[in-house]
Amino acid sequence: MKPAPFSYERPRDLNAALAMLAANGSAKIIAGGQSLGPMLNLRLVQPELVVDISGLAALKRAESSRDELVLGALVTHADIEDGRTPDVTRGAMRGVAANIAYRAVRNRGTIGGSLSHADPAADWVSALAALGARLTLRSLAGARTLAVEAFVVGALESALHAGEIVEAIHVPARAVSAHWGYAKSCRKTGEFAHAIGAVLVDPAAATARVVIGAIDTAPIVVTDAAELFGGRVGADYKQRFDARIADLLIAKAGINDAVRRHIHVSVLKRAVHEAAA
């Protein structure tokens, strides 16, 4: 399990990194290396060039304003878990970060790397979609922003163009009235989840965002989730949660296996209960 030969560059600034990516179509970016490392060793990817962006200080910044938090792509899960970054989600992100894989992975793994890898079972893919986060993507041609749910398009498939990199994650502040629930089921501690449910419910504003994740493809993101609560989001949303609608949504996403659907619905229900607790 040794990688095929590749060239390695460690650029000093973002523009240099973008130039390398533009010049080499098969280049792969390495940040924390928690996904790419094993894939290289298993020879599942055989890039000509690996661009190590871990030295780019500009991507390690974390800044918050009243309305949002901006996290550089190189912020690690442990940075968030340990509270080294500001928080506008009233603990929601910290809770998610603390349960990503194992501490060793969290020490090195980055939020931008996790999103770029676009593994449907990864926590940020679902959690940030529920929180309504947006991404800044940058290439030599300039920058654009995308909602997380538009960024992850399939299993290990993102909307990144050739030569483009995830630069920053913009997380909107969670309203004081908004309830957060996040549940996942893993075969064991630290393993990838086989079902994720994430809900951000604001009974005061009568809004709800609901995510059903770890479904083999991009998560199901329901930005206006009233239908899952009998047509309106109110204080009694826990009682009004409609498992049959959730089941239909999952079936519509192509999950034909009733057992898997049942597990997904049950995990989503856990998230709803956690939000209401």
Partner: peptide, 8 residues
């Protein structure tokens, strides 16, 4: 303890 709906 067994969760019959999630299987854990």
């Amino acid at each position: 303890a067994v969760d019959p709906d999630v299987g854990e």
